[in-house]
Amino acid sequence: MRLTFTVNGRKQQADDVWEGESLLYVLRERMGLPGSKNACEQGECGSCTVRLDGVPVCACLVAAGQAQDREVVTVEGLADFARQRDHGGCAAEGHGISLDDAKRWRSKPGENAQLSPIQRAFIDAGAVQCGFCTPGLLVAADELLERNSSPSDEDIREALSGNLCRCTGYEKILDAVRLAAARSEEAV
């Protein structure tokens, strides 16, 4: 079947989609967006968490056809999504590159990427080890902070209880969410 939907603000189309495919498979294998991860494919790990019309869901449990005409945000679009939310407008607006930044620019993967506050906090807090759980956790944590800008530890634990991490023991993930929350308070 043919599938048309919006991913990270862009209209996308896929053809010859098998009806049993998940949204996760379509994103990873047909859209070139492998950021959402395939750790369990049974909704028990949260690694594939994406926003579907704004709601955090496990992309592995959304049938591809159910995404028709809907809007999906993945980790690849998280920074833009956060910027639009913070500035209430287009991602590029109001965030020009300074001359100094431009001079420092280097063509190296990952360097100087525009990160959302939660992405920055995950790096700074040491919340990333193997990183396989990270994309799903970022989408879930970002949505938590959108709802609740100063969550208690138990709130953070509840909001992230659907995201398994096998490397970190979660402590530094808690640190990262606290850090992002504290930085946003400071910024206000």
């Binding site: 950021g35 959402s36 990427a113 990160l115 990333v128 990270t134 970022l138």
Partner: peptide, 11 residues
């Protein structure tokens, strides 16, 4: 981590 940025952006 040098791979941190790539890991948080899904790349």
């Amino acid at each position: 981590r040098p791979d941190g940025t790539l890991k948080v952006t899904g790349e």
